[in-house]
Computed example of a mutant assay.
Amino acid sequence: MKAVVCDAWGPPGMLKVQELPDLVPAPGQVVINVHAAGVNFPDVLIVQGKYQFKPELPFVPGSEVAGVIRAVAADVSAFRTGDRVIAFVPTGGFGQQLLAPAQSLIPMPPDMDFDTAAAITLTYGTSYHAIVDRAKLETGENMLILGAAGGVGLAAIEIGKALGARIIACASTDEKLAACRQHGADVLINYNKEDLRAAIKVATGGKGPDVIYDPVGGDYTEAAFRSIAWGGRHLVVGFANGAIPQLPLNLALLKGASLVGVFWGEFTKRDPQGNMANMRQLLRWLQEGKIRPHISKRYQLDEAAQALNDMAARKVTGKIVVLPQ
């Protein structure tokens, strides 16, 4: 089989497609023929050795896949060869075959395509855990989303709307904001053209957002947190800007506000049953048309490094996927 291999820490351009032996399942495992693999910002950090999780070299990057089971271990009874499944794994996604624990698999709904299936676990799983489990967003509340046109951002818009919230989407270009509008955002803020705090004040009638969804970090975090409503919840999702903000903690005191950490990957390990329940709800919403992953570009396996470079350069709207077959 062919796979993208990371054999040294560095920029995505160092990645190479290599021929590897076909995979064989160990007890409790299945082998999947990967038809689509989602690309995510953590993938950019992982190949550089800059993420919380640091795999042993060499490894195949990529964590979320959709495909067809090609082999199962003798002790696996819940799945069989030919089943269409979704898997989220630490590594291995950017290859034609993937080893995955059978207990981590999600059966694909019969009418779902592979691209969509590979685009739902990390972004929608992260956003659902953040908004529902951590922020406990309520109907009628205002939620401000920074970096709203990215994968987790568009997912957050749709989940917020499904829960009956009013969504204020912030992004860096009018083109990105147009995508936010298409996915349900009520108010749009271009923070390259507008003063963020002033625009938030207008958008919320001076009250401030009840929930801030922040996958960006950098200078936008403090400006948003200074605008938060009394008792608001600021979700710390990630730092796509590259800079980890240093917030004056007296702001939390003055607003009675909470800084709420969101680490979906660790949540899936500590509460796998809770994560599976979340994924089942997301799949129900998908079938009801309440969420619809936006896939802006598809890449062949030998273009995986370019996909990661595009992600790093923040050229991506919604999701992008690699097609290993």
Rank of each mutant, 00 (worst) to 15 (best):
K2L: 14
W9I: 10
G13D: 10
L15I: 02
V17A: 07
Q18F: 03
L23F: 01
V24H: 15
P25C: 09
G28R: 01
N40W: 07
V47E: 04
L57A: 06
P61W: 08
A71V: 02
A74V: 07
S77W: 06
F79I: 01
F88A: 12
P90K: 08
T91M: 02
G92K: 04
G93N: 10
G95D: 02
Q96D: 01
L99F: 13
L105W: 09
I106H: 05
P110R: 15
F114N: 03
T116W: 03
A118P: 08
T121R: 13
G125L: 02
I131D: 02
A149C: 08
E158W: 06
L163W: 08
R166G: 00
A171M: 09
S172G: 14
A179M: 07
V187H: 07
L188I: 12
E194T: 10
T204G: 15
G206T: 01
G208W: 03
V211K: 11
D214G: 05
P215R: 13
D219E: 11
A223N: 11
A224Y: 05
A240L: 01
G242K: 05
I244Y: 01
L247Y: 04
N250M: 14
L253Y: 00
L254P: 11
G256T: 06
T268Q: 00
N275E: 10
L286I: 04
L286R: 13
K297Q: 09
D302P: 08
L308K: 03
G318V: 09
K319W: 07
